[in-house]
Design a protein around this nucleic acid. Structure first.
Lengths: 243, 243
DNA sequence: CATTCATCCTGATCGAGATTAAGTTTGGGT
DNA sequence: ACCCAAACTTAATCTCGATCAGGATGAATG
C-alpha cells in the first residue's frame, strides 16, 4: 500500500497513535493524486475551499497579501503536511497557498474527512494534533518576528525547518536541500530581501550556516543552536498523548 | 442550565452546529469552577498539562519568555475561549498562561474531552473549529508583526480584539472595557512600551481611537477600520461549515 | 547568439522605532 | 496625610534594518 510509505504516513505512524485500520480508512479517503505547477495559487484568499490536500512531494507556502503590496508568508508546507486544513471548518480560506516547486498532493474531501471522525475517533485526534502542531509552529514563527533580531530570526528559522524536514527524512544535522529563495525568507521573516542577503553572508562568514545553491549546510550545528537559542525537541517526540 | 448562558455556549451555539444533547455532554464535562489570581501562571512552559479550561470570566494571555528576557505575548484569551487547548495533544505546553484579571474557569480533563469525541463527533468538529480559529488569530497576529508598522499594528489589534469581544457581548462599535496595560500591548505587538505610548497618543490625536483608563473607545470606527485595513468579517459568521 | 528574467550580491543613505532617562498621575496601604 | 509602586507620559539620542541604486550571474527563451 502506497500510503504506508508516504511522508505523511511516516509522520503519523511515528507517533504510534493510528491503528492499521485507521490508516486504511485514511488511505481510502485519498481520492486522487493531483499535480500543481509552481507559481500558481492552489488556494486563494476569500475563496471557499472544500478540499484538503496532503502534500506528497514538493514544497509550498501559505501567505497573506496586504493592500500595501507587502506579502507575509505564514508558513511553509513540506511533504507530509496538510494543505488547507484550517479552511475545512472555516468556510473560506483567509490565506493563499502557492507551490514553490512542482507539487504532488492527495486530495481529500473535507466532508469525507469530517464524516470519518465518527468512524474512527483516533483520526479526529490525529487531525486535531496536526492542527495543534501547525498552530505551534505559527506561534513560534510569531515569537521570532516579535522579539528576535534579523540574524537570530534567520538562524532559528533555518534550524526549525531542518527539524521539520528531519521528521520526514529529508534532512540531517549536516543540512538539507532547500528550494527557497532569499525573497521567500524575506517575506516569511518580515525583512527586506537586501537585508536577508546581508545577514546570510554574516552567518556564513561566522561559520555557522551556509544558505546557497538550493542547499542549507550547517557548518557548525551546535554553535548555530546556541546562537539562535533553538529548542528543537517539541517537534521530535510530542505526538498525540497516549492515554 | 448554567452552561447555556455562558459566553462559551453563546459563542458555540451562535454557529448552530452543536445540538442540545451535544451541549449537554459538553456541560457534563465541566468538572468544577476554579479561580485564579492575577499575576501567577496557570500553565507553565515545559510542564505537562492534562487539563483544559474554558474561560468563564476574566482575561488571560499566553506568552513565551526568551532567554534575553524579552517576552512575546502570543495571544489574549477572553471569556468563552479555551485555555490550553493546544497542549492537550502536545504533551507539554510550549507557552505560559497568565491571568490579567482574576479568572474564573471551568476545568475539563483532556482525557474526558477526547473520549467524548467518540460519543459526539460534532464535538470533535467544534473543538477542531475552535483550534482552527485560534490558529487563524495567531496567523493574523503574525501578519501584523511582519508587515505592518506600529500604528497600523496597534489599530488593527484593537479592532480585532473588539470583534472578538463583540462575539461574546462584551463590546460594541463604541468601544469596550479593556484591562490591558500598555506593557501588554508592547509585548504582544513587538514594540517598546515607550513607543506604544507614543503611537497611542497619535491615534488619539488623530481622532481614531482612545486607549485610556481601562477602556478602548472608538472615536471614529469607520476611519479606524480604513486606517488599519481591517476585515472583521471572518470572525462573525464563519462557524463550522454545515454539510 | 543576443535577450530577457530571476536570483543573488553590495554600498550609501535614511528613517522607524529602541533605548535611555527623566517626570507625572493614580490608587492602595498604613 | 503620607509613602510607594504601577502605570503612564515625554524628550533626546542611537541603531537596526529599509530603501535606493546599482552590478553580476546563470538559466531560459527568441
Amino acid at each position: 500500500m502506497q500510503m504506508l510509505d508516504s511522508p505523511f504516513a511516516r509522520k503519523l505512524t511515528s507517533f504510534a497513535t493510528l491503528s492499521h485500520t485507521d490508516l486504511n480508512i485514511l488511505s481510502d479517503l485519498h481520492q486522487r493524486r493531483r499535480k500543481f505547477a509552481m507559481g500558481r495559487d492552489m488556494v486563494r484568499q476569500g475563496h471557499p475551499n472544500r478540499t484538503v490536500y496532503v502534500l506528497a512531494d514538493g514544497w509550498a507556502f501559505s501567505y497573506v497579501l496586504l493592500p500595501s503590496g507587502a506579502r507575509q508568508i505564514v508558513d511553509f508546507r513540506i511533504p507530509g503536511d496538510f494543505l488547507g486544513l484550517r479552511s475545512i471548518l472555516f468556510r473560506r480560506s483567509d490565506q493563499n497557498v502557492e507551490p514553490i516547486t512542482p507539487i504532488e498532493a492527495s486530495e481529500v474531501l473535507a466532508s469525507d474527512l469530517i464524516d470519518a471522525f465518527s468512524k474512527t475517533p483516533a483520526l479526529a485526534k490525529a487531525v486535531l494534533w496536526a492542527a495543534s502542531r501547525d498552530e505551534s509552529m505559527v506561534a513560534d514563527h510569531l515569537v521570532g518576528l516579535g522579539r528576535r533580531n534579523a540574524a537570530e530570526r534567520i538562524a532559528h528559522f533555518l534550524l526549525e525547518l531542518g527539524a521539520r524536514l528531519r521528521l520526514v527524512g529529508l534532512a540531517s544535522n549536516a543540512g538539507y536541500a532547500c528550494p527557497l529563495t532569499q525573497y521567500h525568507l524575506a517575506d516569511a521573516l518580515g525583512l527586506s530581501d537586501v537585508h536577508v542577503n546581508r545577514v546570510l553572508r554574516q552567518l556564513r562568514e561566522m561559520g555557522l550556516v551556509t544558505f546557497q545553491n538550493g542547499r542549507v549546510t550547517f557548518d557548525d550545528f551546535a554553535a548555530l543552536v546556541t546562537f539562535a537559542d533553538f529548542e528543537g525537541d517539541y517537534l521530535d517526540h510530542n505526538g498525540p498523548a497516549r492515554q
